[in-house]
Design a protein around this nucleic acid. Structure first.
Lengths: 182, 182
DNA sequence: CAAGGCATGTAAATCGTTACATGATTTA
DNA sequence: TAAATCATGTAACGATTTACATGCCTTG
């Protein structure tokens, strides 16, 4: 239900193609939102039909023509309405990792430990990858119209980092506890 | 794709109905997994067809007959295979709250602040509700066959609490930053 | 006496993934 | 020369939500 809103949010920053939208999601929202190209393209068409975005076709040789989408006034209104809506406080999420951990106690000590060690490494790797996001945010902070958004991005990024650090420390502790107590 | 596994995980603890499964999810996994009854019932049927669970019908007056499902040997094998599978390290998640925060910088200062305050309260409320889970976990720790699972549940619960505390503190800070810097 | 809990399900619609289809350009 | 990047899309399938359908019992 939110993919149209995500797209409007990105197009409000600057016009871009479906392909660009995908890359932006991969680089900046992948920790809390993502979509495949096969979902993005049809959604863009729907948004165009509703008059919330409009496309400009740029011919290319050897590739399909680029379709650069930009947000319309109606689209901007829609985006702002969505941002002001109250969020129901339940915040439902699905995490394959947490789910796995929840039932992990079914396994033998050694199998539990190997899963925990594996997830610890994955978590450390995620934490390292945050550098790239930092650079993008700092650049945005320089761009005149984006200073306010960059401030929010910076704050959110700090939260993400804290959460990841908490997770890493927790995995380290969990491994010790399982080693001793089982 | 994981709902069958969640169901097997719960039925491995003790036999129960679809309705009970829903309640268990609402009380213990709601922070990282959930499902509606309209999805649980058909999934139970599929699992029965595959021989991973079996049902015992208990007649009732004035209500539909209870169907108490239990896990089979094949089901237990399936569960353990799943638990040992490697998780792809990308851990894709969707969070409506984070998404909202990501684009919140589009709004005016006062609208940003009212959303942040609202989310801070929601987060505090979530943190308070963790008491109930603590009690359930401690009870499980006493049950002989469940000690090892209860240990994992306790660890996970600690992580959940830490993450929520981190969020609360972050919201408090974010509100101050927005008040001063915008 | 109204609201919520107990207890089952089906049907339709929407959301999301996987697989298919194309093909030039750049990088390793 | 193989793989990745650029760039668009469609079709089939699977996952999930929403709406519909029933009806007693318990609690406030």
């Amino acid at each position: 239900m939110s993919l149209p809103n995500v797209i409007l949010g990105f197009l409000n920053v600057e016009p871009m193609t479906g392909y660009d939208l995908k890359k932006n999601m991969d680089h900046s929202t992948q920790l809390f939102w993502h979509a495949k190209l096969s979902q993005i393209y049809p959604t863009l068409k729907q948004l165009e039909t509703k008059g919330l975005v409009k496309a400009k076709v740029v011919p290319q040789k050897g590739k399909p023509n680029k379709k650069i989408y930009s947000i319309t006034k109606a689209g901007r209104r829609d985006l702002i309405t969505w941002l002001n809506e109250p969020l129901d406080e339940s915040n439902p999420i699905k995490s394959a990792v947490f789910l796995r951990l929840f039932f992990l106690g079914v396994l033998d000590k050694e199998d539990i430990l190997s899963q925990l060690r594996c997830q610890l490494e994955a978590q450390r790797a995620r934490l390292k990858r945050t550098r790239q996001a930092e650079i993008i945010i700092q650049e945005a902070g320089q761009t005149p119209g984006l200073a306010q958004q960059a401030l929010m991005w910076d704050l959110l990024h700090q939260l993400g980092k804290l959460q990841m650090q908490t997770s890493v420390q927790w995995f380290e502790k969990a491994i010790l506890v399982v080693e001793k107590r089982l």
